[in-house]
Simulated assay, not measured.
Amino acid sequence: MFIKSLRSLFVMLVIPLVLSMGLGLSASAMAADDQSSQQQAVQTSDADLWRAVKAGESGYTVAKGVETGVLINVVGNEGEIVRNQYLTPVMGITVVGVFAAFLFFYLVNGPSKLSKGFSGKMVLRWSKADLWIHWVMATSCLALIFTGLNIMLGKHVLQPYIGEGLWAALIYGSKTIHDWVGPIFIVSWLLCVVKWMPMQTFKMYDLKWFLVVGGYVNFGPFKGQHPDSGFANAGEKLWFWSLTLFGLFIAASGLMLVLPGLDLPREASMAALLIHSISAVIIIAFTIVHIWMATVLSEGGMECMVSGYCDENWAVQHHNVWYDEMRDSNSIVYKD
């Protein structure tokens, strides 16, 4: 009887204990499953969040301004890739390639000599105002070119070979000069366009100028050919209209980049930067050509932009239409 009572007591104690353990294990399993589900949901939510951020989707922020809700701007990143991987190498190739091409041409061809030599009679070609406009624009343009090249190419060409302190000063100085010289170039560029545009109309005889390379070739079938040309030859007209168009692009995009009050969206800023860089590449190429043509390739050409006068034989050989018009109208002004 006593043993039977012990068995009953044991059953009464063990069964609740077993049930309690079973319920506890079930509850723990359910809690673990719930926690795992929550963690998975959080991970999925984080992945979706960052996927949206990387895609450039806009979120919410209390900050005020343009695109403050966008954490990563896709267009900006893609524009930076285009600038660094394509435009920067193209700019370097343009500078080296165009300069090398004209150096090779000069070494093979030599300068374009005056067929009748210098006459000693100097004819007025440019006024004092023209000279001031030209040299202010030329100086500011060269300053922008050299500082712009340092900004674009300096980290590849100079930075690895100079100290960090010197590089910091150099890049800061380039950026400062670039920003402050820009308005000077814009004003002089605008005066140049307004004052010189009437002389830059293309004529039918300009086509022959291109066909015979302006008469600058000293060998082969082009040797000795001096095509007709007005006040500006066809090459100068091409340079003028390129400067007019891409100078406008450079001026507008440059103002967009440096004026803080505009508060432009990132897409507009990147578009301005790319337009600025592409236009700069074209202007740099034409500037190198212009300098070569005006200095070493054209005998007597540089004197025009120094004193404003050109030798009469130079005028007859390189700008005969203009010279004939002045002669026929009796408006030639000689230097005393």
Rank of each mutant, 00 (worst) to 15 (best):
Leu131Ile: 08
Met305His: 10
Arg327Cys: 04
Lys113Trp: 01
Asn73His: 11
Ser279Leu: 01
Gly59Trp: 01
Gly230Cys: 12
Ser115Asn: 06
Glu57Met: 08
Trp135Asn: 06
Ile278Thr: 07
Trp196Gln: 09
Gly56Ile: 02
Gly301Pro: 02
Glu78His: 11
Val157Ala: 06
Leu243Glu: 06
Lys113Thr: 06
Phe185Ser: 07
Ala41Met: 15
Leu238Lys: 13
Leu262Trp: 05
Met199Thr: 10
Ala234Asn: 04
Ala143Tyr: 10
Leu71Ile: 15
Gly224Asp: 12
Pro221Lys: 13
Gly65Phe: 02
Leu245Asp: 04
Met1Glu: 10
Asp324Asn: 10
His178Pro: 00
Val53Tyr: 01
Pro260Gln: 14
Ser242Ala: 05
Ala168Arg: 14
Ile288Val: 15
Glu267Ser: 15
Ser119Val: 01
Arg327Gly: 04
Lys113His: 07
Ile291Lys: 08
Val181Lys: 03
Thr68Asn: 04
Gly230Ala: 15
Gly235Thr: 06
Leu245Cys: 09
Ile282Gly: 02
Met302Ser: 11
Thr88Trp: 01
Pro111Gly: 02
Leu259Ala: 15
Ile275Met: 13
Gln225Phe: 00
Gly148Ile: 04
Asp48Pro: 00
Val82Leu: 14
Leu49Tyr: 06
Thr94Pro: 03
Val213Ser: 07
Ala294Phe: 00
Ala280Arg: 05
